[in-house]
Each structure stands twice: as C-alpha cells, then as structure tokens.
Nucleic acid binder design. Structure first.
Lengths: 123, 123
DNA sequence: CAGCAATGTTTACAAGCGTAGTCATTACGC
DNA sequence: GCGTAATGACTACGCTTGTAAACATTGCTG
C-alpha cells in the first residue's frame, strides 16, 4: 500500500504535519515555509490531494478538519532515499559517499558520527 | 545557465548519452532500459524536449541527428544530490549517512572505500 | 436575526509529463 | 524510377502539479 508519489509542494505540507500534528488547514497555511507564500486555498487543495493519495487523514473537529499524517517520515525518507541512490549511484552507497565527500561539506560532527557508525557496523 | 529540471523519463535518455555519445535517436531507443519499452517516437519526443531544455545538442549527420549531452553527469548529480540532501536531511550529510547505514545495505567494498575516503579527508 | 468570517467542496487553468500517432521528406534497394 | 523504410517535425491527449477563485455552509457577533 505504498502511497502514491508525493509532489514537491505536497511534501512541504507533509513536513509541517510531521513536525506537529494534528493541525487544521489554516495552521498549516501559517507554518508552511514562508517563501512559498501559498494562499489558504492552495494549502487546502494540497491537503485534499494528500488525503486522496492516502498520505494523510482528517478527523472531524466541529466544522473543520484536523489533519494528521498516515505515511510516516521514516518510511517516506527511506523510499525516496533508495529511489535516489538507485537512480544516480546505481544503488551503491560507496560512490554516493565519495560524491558527497567531494561536493558537499562534511562537518566535523558528521565525520565523527560516520566513524562511529562504521565502527558499530563492523561488529 | 542551469538547465531546466529534467524529468524521470528524460533522465533515462540522458543516462544513455552519458554512457556513450553521440548517438542517434534509434540508438537510444534500443539501449534505453527495456522495462520502459518506449516506442521510437517517444524517445524522439524526449530528445527534442531535452534539446529545448538545453541539456543536449544535436549535430546533423546526413539526414539524421547525432545527439550528445551538454549537461554533464557530474554536474547534474551534484545538483540533484544537494536538492535531495536539503529536502530530506536539512542539508546535513551525517544524518543521511546514518539513514543509509540503517536502511540500505553497505557492501564490504563500500565500507572499505568509505574508510579510505575518511582517512584521506583527515589529512 | 443579519451579516460576516471561517471552513470545506467544486471547478479552473496553464505548464509539464508520459506516451505516442500522423505527416512530410528522403535515401536506398530492386 | 518507384516503393519502402528511416527519420525529423508537428500534433495529441489524458494525467499531474502549482496555484488558486468561486461557491456553499455554518457558527459567531452584534
């Protein structure tokens, strides 16, 4: 039951709900990243599309809805990550890492964490 | 001159051209991953959209075209990677790595390579 | 009670995408 | 030379996406 693909704009809405839920449509309209400057209507459209896609539900609260995610973030991220790694790095983490190392900055912390994880994996 | 966004289908075509170029439309139709089973026409449409987007060029060869990438893979991958890391991991490579470590399998090789890169980075 | 504000529902509409069909031209085999 | 196959150009068409407006309902305020 893998929930249809979620679009960019829809993702922003999901991300709000992942940070906090349940929320009403206007709650979301307020906390959606400001750069987008969506009208309330736009947010509502996105919400109902997400409901159709099975990514969120709404429960009735008086005369409005409270929305909350069905799809959880962990899961979504996992799906997108493997799509990504497959498409661009033939599914191999090594090359991905090499790329990141070259192009994206790793902070000290990042490196420390990675070393820790590696150590753990080797056990 | 950042080349418009490339769609999924278009990407497959690009990937052919990145492996080998120049190629004719029918070359590409043949080597595009078979699961898609695109008709030659479809491939041609994708090619012309890519030309419009500035991602590839064609040079005339008799009465057909030879296509070759303008956008290079390195660059494209870099762009997509940072989009991806930003969207899902707030731009931090550490968490991404942690996620991959948990969810995707790392092969022995991968691990070895990553350790090598780490060592190198620390110099 | 009358009107306004909030809220969901329906409809819109242009651009992008996946997937081709049709048309016109032309090179090549017979 | 003539038909056929290859090839590019143009057109199509339904679906998704981003972005909303218009409409209907209803609870609240004065």
């Amino acid at each position: 039951m893998a929930v249809e693909r979620i679009s960019d704009a829809e993702f922003e809405v999901m991300d709000c709900l992942w940070q906090q839920s349940p929320l009403t449509a206007s709650d979301i309209a307020e906390r959606v990243p400001a750069e987008r400057k969506w009208s309330l209507q736009t947010v509502k459209t996105l919400l109902s599309r997400l409901v159709n896609k099975g990514a969120i539900t709404h429960e009735v609260d008086g005369r409005r809805y409270l929305y909350r995610p069905l799809l959880d973030r962990e899961n979504y991220v996992a799906g997108e990550s493997s799509r990504f790694v497959n498409r661009l790095f033939s599914g191999r983490a090594g090359p991905l890492f090499a790329h990141l190392a070259e192009r994206e900055a790793f902070s000290e912390e990042d490196i420390a964490e990675i070393e820790r994880l590696l150590k753990e994996m080797k056990k």
